[in-house]
Amino acid sequence: MLKKRIIPCLDIMEGRTVKGVNFGDLRDAGDPVELAEKYVEQRADELVFLDITSTIEQHGLLTGLVRKIAARINLPFTVGGGISTLGDVGDLLNAGADKVTINSSAVRNPGLITDIAGHFGSQCLVLAIDAKFVNNEWLVFIDGGRTATELKAVGWAERAEKSGAGEILLTSMDADGTRSGFSLAITREIAARVNIPVIASGGAGTMEHFREVFSRTGCSGALAAGIFHYGEIAIPELKRYLKLKGINVRV
């Protein structure tokens, strides 16, 4: 049986792992390659690395980091941040990333989804959606949460699937950093509307929150950062707990 995935996310800034709260205030959380190796030992199912400062100058830096990670770990991993061209995607995949994730660039240029899927296959393309509940609607935000768009999260997810995205990484900006649980309603709705895997992100604070998102929505995986980096929840313990509660995980 296909297992639900537990995915630690490493936000990268100038080569270090950092953790923010509600898309703001950053704290240092260590060397990304060392953290990645720790997560492999703990039997994380997959890793995500997001370069939150990436600019054109730093693109080479990210590729170098991806190469180091790929040489050291034998888990699938996704890389994102500042990807806006087919060339960027090719560089990161060639450096050893299994998947790339795009967000702002896909909103500005939806054709990019089709192009990436056509050149490299849907399996390597994760569409990230940062969503916020505004005036009774879940809207898509871009530029690391700084810019609002008029896109509705559900419609955008459906369109992305049709264009060739292989997976959706859905972050609730309202829940992110609050540790009060995943945003269940929007996760449930998007997972029900698309036939590609949806990863829930934002709001994980307790082991119960993971059980909740897996039992009450159709998401395929759950992503978290801070609670794993600072050791507040240990992944082996989380997985034993989930298994006990009847959630299918790899222990």
């Binding site: 296909l2 997959e46 299994d98 399996q123 590609i196 395929s220 790899r250």
Partner: peptide, 30 residues
């Protein structure tokens, strides 16, 4: 959901490739 993406188990293992592999081991598919 398609692609089949993530960790899944396998059964009816035969042959030298699976020496030492246990029935509840998972491997990554995409």
């Amino acid at each position: 959901k398609v692609p089949h993406m993530g960790w899944n188990s396998f059964t009816a293992l035969k042959g030298a490739l699976f020496r030492g592999i246990k029935a509840d081991d998972d491997v990554y598919y995409v």
